[in-house]
Write a protein that binds this DNA or RNA. Sequence first.
RNA 1: GCCCCGGUAGCUCAGCGGUAGAGCAGUGGACUCUUAAUCCACGGGUCCUGGGUUCGAAUCCCAGCCGGGGCACCA
Length: 559
Amino acid sequence: MSAVLDQLRERIRSLTQLQTAGIDPYPYVSFEPVPTSRIHQAFDEWQGKVAVVAGRLVARRIMGAVTFLDIEDEAGRIQLYVHRDHICPGEEKTFYRDVVRKWLDLGDILRAEGTVFRTRTGEISIDVRSLTLLAKALRPPPIAKRKGEKAFSELKDPETRHRQRYLDLMVHPRVREVFRRRTQLIDAIRSFLNRHNCLEVETPVLHPVYGGAHARPFQTTVYALGNMPVYLRIANELYLKRLVIGGFERVYEFSRDFRNEGIDRTHHPEFTMLEVYIAYRDYQWMAQFTEQMLTEAIQRVAGTLLLPYSGKTIDWTPPWQRITYLEGLRQATGQDIQALSDTALRDLAIRAGIDVEGLKLTTRAQIIDKLFGTLVEPHLWNPTLVFDFPRELSPLAKRHRQNPALAERFELICGGMEIANAYTEQNIPWEQRARFLEQQRERERGDEEAMPFDEDFLLAMEYGMPPMAGLGVGIDRLTMLVTDQPAIQEVILFPLMRVRPVHEYAVPFPYEELPSVQASMSVASVHHRASSSTSAASRELRAQQDLPVDQSGSEGSPR
RNA sequence: GCCCCGGUAGCUCAGCGGUAGAGCAGUGGACUCUUAAUCCACGGGUCCUGGGUUCGAAUCCCAGCCGGGGCACCA
């Protein structure tokens, strides 16, 4: 017998005892509890008034005839002061003695009703006169104790935290806060874009031809269309551009994109990207737009532009640092990269510790980009706009108006990561066709990630594509920076993991040891009719039945 | 895909050739304002899995599984 099985049997025992006493462990309810945070914020208004709260039982301190229960709801906790004679005013004390002290377990979901007051030690509490079990927890929560923000024996194992994210969220309010901020950040960006007359649209996830990025796709099949192969989108660039061709001048989409590549702390197979396309603008304008959009969103979500990250500070105050790609390389290497011969460039890369042979870097552009990624990008801490990338690396961007070897493209680098990428978009059909042909040649040379030739997209361009600027923002990475998280898995609710049989990480619950469903049903119905019973347990049941079905809002303010 | 590190009680961890440990959680008891409550007592283990070495393996070796970190990939 295992220890956990012992604990599960204890839960069965308390559950059975509750049912025998006529308490439904999973009652039907509909009510609106007062958020505990509101009671803490407005204690003066609440003091002496009756509040209904609900949440998970996270701590219990039994002091003889008084028991303190801490319950936690989404945004906070509150202490329940359960006095034997307050919750059981008559002679009958079994509800207190058995239910409160014994049969409730950590993890149970409770509803409590009582008077808001402050204990002698100053803790804002509820003097409970009615306590209802809303849902029994059959397993113990993985939390021991907590003092303020500091948890003892908190859940640390990254595998459990990610595989069973609900446990991570349950015991770590700070993790809930990370995901709340993620949503706030997206809201703030959406609000900015809407105010700038951008239209939010939804384009397909299933692409017959994938494109818009350099990546390996996930493939699947549509049975209804003759087993047509389709790909999960790696970007939505080509569809959004079609919309601009169609006459929507400012469009954007928050899109879940999928790339079948490595997983590490800045890469996840499915991730969220914001793409924005603005007609009649170029990449210089887009750089300012991006700066404005992100600083506004960060200021709104974080309340400051000085954000702690990884033990240091990131200063998002505009204007951000602006460099060109080649300047960055010149500062890092002391060389004018463009002027170097092929062999000099190769030597430079090897001296920089790059294994040119092993990495199969063949073209100049590949070597140059590796140099940039190794020598420049990791050292850009504060937000930096890097302009004018080599043309070969940017098949969808328009050629630089002054230097034909470059493309009108910038990336936003921050915290050593690429956060955003933008172009003056290529709108000359034959130029686009030439870039597609180049990509096709790379595919034929074995580069699986080179973009397929998209005939249909080219056709759309032939009808006239307005000059425009486009932007892609890595929302997950941006969230990492705003919430000070070291890994993308910390800002994705359910990061992808290898499948593992559940019994390998949890002891199966011994359902066969539970009293039968039939038995529990009949017990409940007997007590439903026997509402004149004077037992403490059924008094609780009655209190719960007396609840209004829905007081939408009325319980949310002091009465 | 490669390299390194880890996997021991529900949680956090110690133990690293000689009977499986601690704190918290759990159970029983005491306690009418506690808050990491306290005090007394008790129960709880496939030491990730499978091989091997050894008189003896949680401990050493090999393989595998899962996770983490790094590299590669992600232009």
